[in-house]
Design a protein around this nucleic acid. Structure first.
Length: 785
DNA sequence: GTTCTAAGATTTTTT
DNA sequence: ATCTTAGAAC
């Protein structure tokens, strides 16, 4: 074996097939714990080493910043280790730290720095910082490179303002949250306001389309984009401008996508445009020196509420591949060996997921011992459940020296469940860490500071300007602000232009005009330093000048103390950013990265604390001991999914994700009574418990695990609906293109058929609802001839 | 123009 | 039960 390919020896045959793939399309169906990150990183290394691909030509898209960082680090290590062997004849780990660092920075300079690895959002914002000025929207408007990125709360307040103040609509009927959701959903399908109106031809649809259109006006006026735009804009730009598209197409010859099951329509469009350099849906076959390599697992698709569409993964073979059956295909590889969990845990996971109809056939194969039984605990209420979990952790931690606190994870369906557990952890002095929940960058004080910075970087950003104009109080009150805003709206110019116009400001009362003048001067002063001073000095300067820190100091409360500390942490984040991005340490760059970062990204390998998080946050992680709590009907599966078979399948996948996080031990639990909205409600065991194989489980009471699942009380009186058999459906009964009517979703058209025999599922596109997956056996569908 | 109080919503998940 | 928001009091 040559030295170049020595590292391939650590791979099993399917991994190796994936890693050695060079040109053309490949779908890697990667089960949980099957080494998909290894496949991705080794393949990138192999492209560079064996096929001499220029790192600049490689694009790898991940789902989280953390995954991106991990991938970069692992590639760096791979190359540095190889270098170490050839230079010193021994592995990297055995070198003195100084030489290790030296090798790594050499690898960084020559290779990893040039790879584009990041989330869809991070990569798109990088593209847009370069090319957004070449884009014009359908009304001929454009953005400049200093655009702001509005987060979800910015977006929601814009929508709210439009609904209540501009359109004078009842915000009960047009709840800003659900309107914003509809807009986001539209953007994730690449729909314009007109498309949305066409999709939903009724009063509500027209209103929402109108809000969408005004919302877009507001974004343009602020020189701002929301999360969805970050993806949609490059797609539109590529469609509009052939030169720009051709550039990025030739730039990224090898495209890799992680978590492909979580991509939405717009993200798919983006990938397709980059790979094929066109919008045509015809099969693409010019694969010379090009590849598209996607990795995913339909069983771990848990983001459909965010418009993720795993039928995209299921369609890969049709889109790019050879469409041959599984045994003959050269464009799909399955990674089924699981290196993470014990055999018992895997059997549990396999059993559970087998209840889903909508799948690619795939089984997790064990490579480790049987392990211990899974324990199911029935508790009286959520406090007793928490007591059980914490007791178990304490006993195990004391008994096994290798099990530090960091080896335990407690996973739950909703964030609200953490509180009861936290209380008990605190009571017993068990150190813990909550992952997710309130993001660092969502804290009030951090948003205030970022508001100043955004207002400096992007004068058109009126939203940020309004956030800080009177924070801390500088005598610019509501009346003053109102009159200024009204002036800007009447003249149709950004608020900033009014603020800098002396005649406008002089019409204000003495106190107000003084405040406005000094505020404006302060921002101008720091804006003029944007290109000369490093970002950290601007942050520090504006914090002093604005009196923000002084204001916190005066308050003297514990809360204010906390906030000052957080601002300090933000300052550190700026410093760190400058160190890590020496090629572009600008304030603008920092602001982008701040908008796109999540709490999860800073999650270190925690050795000293127990981790608490939602099941969604746990995806991609692993722990020796996992507690899956709150397995109650209505909580998990969540009540909103009970009537919708497709949503229920997603809940089941979520449960599957939770189970497959565990390496050695798995505990599941539920309570018979739980506090909800402040009052106690009886609870019944989750449907999923009944779907687990009893022979692999132990429990605290004999009846803890239901054998056959019966719908809880309320439904049982509703008659024999549970057992009435719907007509048996067979795949031959349906064809793509069939028109159907569904009780809740209205009329639609069949777009895909999944599965075979009588175990099938249909993808149906409903007018205005987008695509849904339905099981014709569970959901009555009326066929329209 | 600021601060306090009471009603009202909120709980699915997040880049 | 807790947090946010709107409106009234100061």
């Amino acid at each position: 074996m040559t030295q170049t390919t020595e590292f391939l020896a650590h791979l099993n045959p399917s991994q190796r097939q994936a890693v050695e793939h060079y040109c053309g399309p490949l779908l890697v169906v990667a089960g949980a714990g099957s080494g998909k990150t290894r496949a991705l990183t080794y393949r990138i290394a192999n492209l560079v080493l064996t096929h001499r691909v220029d790192p600049e030509n490689i694009l790898a898209v991940t789902f989280t910043n953390k995954a991106a960082r991990e991938m970069k680090e692992r590639i760096e290590k791979l190359f540095a280790d190889r270098e170490s062997h050839s230079q010193f004849g021994k592995p990297l780990d055995s070198l003195p730290p100084y030489d290790q660092t030296k090798l790594k920075s050499k690898v960084y300079k020559n290779i990893t720095k040039h790879l584009w690895i990041g989330t869809f959002h991070a990569l798109c914002s990088r593209i847009l910082r370069l090319d957004i000025e070449k884009f014009q929207d359908e009304k001929g408007r454009s953005w400049d490179r200093n655009f702001s990125i509005f987060d979800e709360s910015d977006a929601q307040s814009l929508v709210k303002d439009i609904v209540t103040n501009r359109l004078n609509l009842d915000d009960k009927k047009f709840d800003p949250r659900s309107v914003r959701f509809a807009i986001s959903n539209a953007k994730n399908q690449s729909w314009s306001p007109q498309d949305l109106e066409r999709e939903q031809q009724n009063y509500r649809g027209r209103v929402i389309a109108n809000v969408y259109s005004m919302y877009q006006d507001a974004l343009v006026a602020n020189n701002a984009l929301d999360f969805d735009d970050l993806i949609l804009m490059p797609v539109k730009l590529f469609r509009q401008n052939e030169q720009v598209r051709a550039y990025w197409h030739s730039r990224f010859r090898h495209v890799l996508v992680d978590e492909y099951q979580d991509t939405n329509r717009t993200q798919y469009d983006l990938i397709r445009l980059l790979v094929t350099n066109s919008d045509s849906t015809q099969t693409f076959d010019q694969w010379e020196y090009r590849s598209v390599f996607v990795v995913g697992d339909a069983d771990q698709s848990i983001y459909s509420f965010r418009a993720a569409d795993f039928t995209i993964l299921m369609g890969f073979q049709k889109d790019f591949g050879d469409q041959l059956p599984d045994d003959d295909t050269r464009t799909m590889v399955k990674l089924e060996e699981n290196y993470r969990s014990t055999e018992n845990i895997l059997a549990l996971a396999n059993h559970l997921i087998d209840n889903n109809t909508e799948r690619i056939d795939k089984v997790l194969k064990p490579t480790r011992g049987a392990g211990e039984a899974i324990f199911c605990y029935r508790a009286d209420d959520e406090n007793a459940e928490a007591e059980f979990v914490v007791q178990q952790i304490r006993v195990m931690e004391a008994k096994h020296p290798e099990l530090h606190w960091g080896k335990f994870a407690i996973l739950y369906r909703t964030n609200a469940q953490s509180r009861a557990i936290e209380e008990v952890l605190v009571k017993h002095d068990v150190p813990y860490k909550i992952v997710g929940g309130l993001r660092f960058y969502d804290r009030k004080e951090i948003k205030d500071v970022l508001g100043y910075l955004r207002a400096i970087a992007n004068p058109a950003d009126t939203v940020s300007l309004l956030r800080v104009i009177n924070t801390p109080r500088r005598g610019i009150g509501k009346a003053t602000i109102d009159s200024l805003v009204r002036a800007s709206q009447e003249l149709d110019v950004p608020l900033w232009e009014i603020l800098t116009d002396e005649t406008s400001v002089k019409t204000l009362s003495g106190r107000s005009s003084k405040g406005v003048l000094s505020f404006v001067q302060m921002l101008q002063k720091w804006r003029s330093q944007l290109d000369t001073l490093p970002a950290n000095q601007i942050v520090q300067g504006i914090m002093e000048d604005s009196g923000y820190m002084q204001d916190l100091k005066i308050q003297g409360t514990e809360e204010a103390e906390d906030r000052m500390q957080n601002v300090g942490e933000l300052y550190n984040a700026v410093l760190q950013f400058e160190e890590q991005n020496t090629d572009d340490p600008s304030l603008i760059g920092f602001l982008s990265s701040a908008s796109l970062s999540s709490d999860l990204d800073n999650l270190e390998e925690e050795v000293t604390r127990v981790s608490l998080m939602t099941l969604h946050s746990s995806k991609g992680l692993e722990f020796p001991v996992v507690f899956l709590v709150g397995l109650e009907q209505g909580l998990f599966p969540n009540f909103r999914s009970l009537e919708d078979p497709a949503a229920l399948e997603e809940e089941r996948r979520l449960c599957y994700v939770g189970i497959t996080r565990a390496q050695e031990r798995l505990f599941v639990s539920y309570a018979r009574e739980r506090r909800l909205y402040g009052n106690r409600e009886p609870a019944s065991p989750s449907l999923f418990l009944a779907e687990l194989p009893r022979e692999l489980m132990q429990s605290n009471v004999a009846t803890a695990i239901p054998t056959r699942w019966t719908k809880p009380s309320a439904a049982s009186s509703r008659g024999p609906s549970e057992t009435t058999s719907l007509p048996d459906t067979h795949e031959d009964d349906w064809t793509v293109g069939d028109r159907v009517v569904h009780k809740a979703f209205g009329s639609g058209q069949v777009t895909h058929i999944f599965g075979a025999g009588n175990k099938i599922c249909l993808a149906v596109k409903f007018a205005g609802m987008g695509q849904k997956i339905v099981d014709p056996k569970l959901t009555p569908l009326q066929r329209v001839e």
